[in-house]
């Protein structure tokens, strides 16, 4: 126990003063007794996420799509690239469950392999967007002032151009091909990720714990990694999951226009593009990849919203 100061000789010890003296050094005082409530942030996230039915369905669906993509070589009934010019544009049958395309290739097999291509492409594009957007977003948000204005000028200029046109221009420079298309989409996405990150960083930067860290003498780089990054991760993760859905959509657009996946690779967008001239003779050719794209994008959006709702701030419940 602390020695009481000598300027307070107190012979008639008072109950409240005595109790206070004890409380000052009491090791457990005031600690929330209700230990049942003690949940780790991860456990709380899981609990909240599991409650969201739509989010759970979306996540399970996305997992299934990923599994399909990974196991496509085993799941696909036929070689997706094997042409059979004698059996073109066939309606679904026992042999070809989803029919055949204009070169007589099995649509189901192409759809399964296409999942692989489309998913990898979406992840690539988002990855490039994050690689460019995250660091600049952190710098712009944290530094503020002139640095922020300079970065945001370039950013706003990029954002003011229609995304797809910009991507087409970049593909034009890099040459067609799926990887190039994804780099282009990544560049188009970077400003959006940058904005999300910058906004959250600006909010976190105003918190007193950042000031407290500065006053401890912690180097700025460490403050950014330890405190800023950690506290912007929720909006960031949500943003990225929504972005992945949109990347998929954009991949489809570019591939549809012939600038993404190249012959003979199967991607959902490329399938859509290839099927377009035959829409009156074999409408099912555009329906299957169309539904696949729509469902996966929807699932990414729903999962993103569910993440947003479960990644709430750690607040004190009283």
């Amino acid at each position: 126990m602390i020695e009481t100061s000598e300027r307070t000789p107190d012979p008639t010890a008072d109950v409240w003063v005595e109790a206070t003296r004890r409380a000052i050094q009491e090791r457990e005082s005031g600690y929330r007794r209700n230990t049942k409530e003690r949940t780790k942030p991860w456990a709380r996230f899981k609990k909240r996420f599991l409650k969201q039915r739509a989010g759970m369905v979306a996540v399970v669906f996305l997992l299934l799509v990923v599994l399909t993509a990974v196991f496509a070589p085993w799941l696909a009934p036929l070689d997706p690239n094997k042409q059979n010019l004698g059996q073109i544009l066939q309606y679904p049958s026992a042999e070809h469950l989803l029919g055949t395309d204009d070169l007589g290739r099995d649509v189901l097999s192409r759809l399964l392999y296409g999942a692989q291509v489309s998913l990898v492409a979406a992840v690539q594009a988002t990855g490039i967007g994050v690689l460019l957007g995250l660091p600049f977003g952190l710098i712009a948000g944290y530094a503020g002032g002139r640095t922020d204005r300079a970065i945001m000028f370039v950013n706003d200029a990029l954002m003011s151009m229609p995304g797809l046109l910009l991507a087409i221009a970049i593909v034009g420079m890099l040459g067609p091909g799926l990887t190039n298309a994804m780099v282009a989409i990544g560049i188009v996405f970077a400003p959006h990720i940058l904005r999300i990150v910058r906004g959250s960083v600006m909010e976190v930067k105003e918190e007193t714990y950042i000031e407290a860290s500065r006053s401890l003498g912690t180097p700025t780089s460490r403050i950014i990694v330890d405190h800023v990054l950690r506290n912007v991760r929720s909006p960031f993760i949500v943003g990225v999951s929504l972005m992945t859905g949109r990347a998929m959509l954009n991949e489809a657009s570019l591939s549809f226009l012939g600038m993404g996946a190249q012959y003979p690779d199967a991607s959902w967008g490329a399938m859509l593009g290839r099927a377009f001239p035959y829409v009156d003779r074999a409408p099912f050719l555009i329906i299957y990849p169309g539904i696949a794209i729509a469902l996966v994008v929807l699932a990414f959006n729903i999962a993103g919203d569910a993440l947003r709702d479960s990644l709430g701030r750690e607040t004190r419940k009283s």
Binding site: D10, V17, T20, G30
Partner: peptide
């Protein structure tokens, strides 16, 4: 100046 007093503990939920 006298030694400070307080009510230790917290209001129950």
């Amino acid at each position: 100046r006298s030694e400070l007093a307080s009510i230790p503990g917290t209001t129950p939920a």
